[in-house]
Simulated assay, not measured.
Amino acid sequence: MGFSLTHFFVFLLSVMQDQFPMKKIAFVVAPYGFGPTAKTIAITQQIIRLSKIPKIVFISQGPATEIAEGINLFSEVWNIDFYNSHALCCISDDCDVLVFVNTSRHILRLSSFASKKLYFVDTLAWVRDKPIQCMHLLDAYFAQEFFGYEVSKQIKNRSNYIPTGIISQYINDQSTRSIDDGYSKRSVVHLGGFFSPAMLKDSDIYFLNMVLIMLKEIEHFFDLILPPYMLPKASMIPENVNCISCSPDEVPRILLDGFISLTTSGIEHTYESILLNKPTMFLPPFNMTQYLQLVHLNRIFPGSVRFDFSSQFESISSNNLDTSTFRIQSMGVDGIWEKQFNQLKAFLQKKFKSSDFKFLKVIHDIQSEMIRNIPRDGAQVITSKVLDLDF
């Protein structure tokens, strides 16, 4: 058997790590839905594949930590008060590297530890008009691309800015499912952003039940992906809906057998759905980042949004995402979500009843062409930098 370039790379990396051992990496992960946790999992899998680092720590709050504990990937999982910097400082005291995923909270405080390297993984760089305040303190700022949206020049001109492709686990993007024969199959529904300290109390339950009411009245079968803690909150599950509780690393397998992906407009699941060759349509936004992403997705993927959303939420300022999320959820519970779900339901009822899926072919082709030009090596790029593999 020959000695390939890959074998040489792994051998050289092993020698380097024996000489310069790194003992512990900590991920500080925003407690806002599946996305940040899924990206952390993808990066961690790369680190484990390429390194001998003995400890990789996951730090977050609430359901995000339950997901991390359930996949048996991290040596430590800490569920902390995300607003308490003292707790974070104590946990990360002996870490060589801190990687912040979608949260800049506490970077300023932790930067006082001169021996630590600090990295920031940002999936919202595209929506920022200027750099985060602590960007100058970072060893690297990884800005994930969002379907060709141009990042601010103020951010791009910083020396530690690193443009980053899709941050995802390795998945086979060649689905064998044909759009034309998909009517007899199940479609996949995914709800993102459901856990957040800033969330309006019980707005997740209201949103979930709006989804279930809509699906019940559509002549089709659906697999609804939910985090484990949400299953008991579903009031009545219709006969045509199968609720699946799973971790982010299991989602691609479920998607692969689906017909349509019907999802909230989070970056993580949108990328994953399209990579797996699924026509992707969008649900009403549950939080502010989903709304901002929906505006862009509606523009580049015509036909994928089948309800009115711009006139209701466009007056909300996005300067503070926690505050604006609370406002969107308050307006949603007060009646806007019901109107939006009714509009989407009417469209889907008509299409499934008539088996008219030509519109899906159009959506699929546009989405496939757009994603073809986006690098898929985001996890590898971040891992290479974190492990100092610049050779």
Rank of each mutant, 00 (worst) to 15 (best):
I80P: 00
V97A: 00
N157Y: 10
H86E: 08
P131Q: 12
S159P: 09
F113T: 09
K156E: 15
L137M: 12
Y83G: 02
F146S: 06
F147S: 04
D139T: 05
K153E: 15
D96N: 06
I132K: 10
S104Y: 14
R109D: 06
R158Y: 11
G148V: 11
F100N: 14
V101R: 02
A114C: 07
G70D: 05
L98N: 14
W78K: 03
V127Q: 15
S112G: 08
V57K: 03
D93Y: 10
V99W: 02
E145Y: 06
L138Y: 05
S92C: 14
E145Q: 10
L108S: 10
K55C: 07
C95L: 01
V127A: 10
N84L: 03
L110M: 14
L138V: 04
I91Q: 05
V101Q: 00
N160W: 03
I47C: 11
Q45M: 12
S60P: 09
A125F: 05
D129F: 10
P131T: 13
I107N: 11
V57W: 02
W126P: 14
D94F: 00
E150G: 07
V99Q: 07
A87N: 14
H136I: 13
V57R: 01
K52L: 08
N79C: 04
E145C: 02
C95I: 03
L73Y: 03
V151C: 13
Y161V: 04
A114Q: 10
P54N: 10
I56A: 08
I48M: 04
G70N: 15
D122P: 13
E150Q: 14
L124K: 04
S85P: 01
D139A: 07
I80Q: 00
L108V: 12
A87G: 12
W78I: 03
K156M: 14
V97Q: 03
H86I: 12
N157C: 08
N102G: 10
R109T: 12
V97I: 15
L138C: 13
L73I: 04
S85F: 00
H86K: 10
V101I: 15
P63E: 02
V121S: 00
F113H: 13
Q133G: 14
T123E: 05
R49G: 04
W126N: 11
F142W: 08
I71R: 09
D93C: 09
H86P: 03
L108F: 10
